[in-house]
């Protein structure tokens, strides 16, 4: 554990920051990271899902307070809020991310 902390390989630097979570089923959830544990279970506050489509802009769905089970977390990204605010979500066209294929 000491090694773990010293290296900062956990999510400690991201606590209280706005983060993007990619789940194993390909969803993209954005919110403020309030807590996490060794298993990558996450607590997200003021979260929303960004639903991507090739036909229309990004749909933002409010979710509120979420606990995401670590097994379903593929990636956690620290969001640069300035860059994020400058994104025009309505103009983005993209297929949803694929699920993590273990098979």
């Amino acid at each position: 554990m000491a090694d773990h902390k010293a290296q900062g390989s956990g999510l400690v630097n991201m606590v209280d920051s706005v983060i993007a979570v990619i789940t194993n089923d390909g969803r993209h959830i954005v919110g403020v990271l309030r807590g996490y544990d060794q298993a990558t279970n996450l607590v997200l506050e003021d979260s929303h899902e960004r639903v991507y489509s090739t036909k229309s802009g990004v749909d933002v769905v409010a979710l509120g307070l979420y606990v995401i089970r670590g097994d379903n977390v593929a990636m956690v990204g620290e969001i640069d809020e300035e860059t994020d605010a400058s994104l025009d979500l309505q103009s983005i066209r993209a297929a949803p991310l694929k699920p993590i294929m273990h098979g």
Binding site: A20, R50, M75, V76, G77, T83, D84, L87, I92
Partner: peptide, 14 residues
């Protein structure tokens, strides 16, 4: 193809 991560600068990958 993947504009999803445009505002992400650092990330943790499981």
């Amino acid at each position: 193809k993947y504009p999803h991560m445009m505002s992400v600068r650092n990330c943790f990958i499981r």
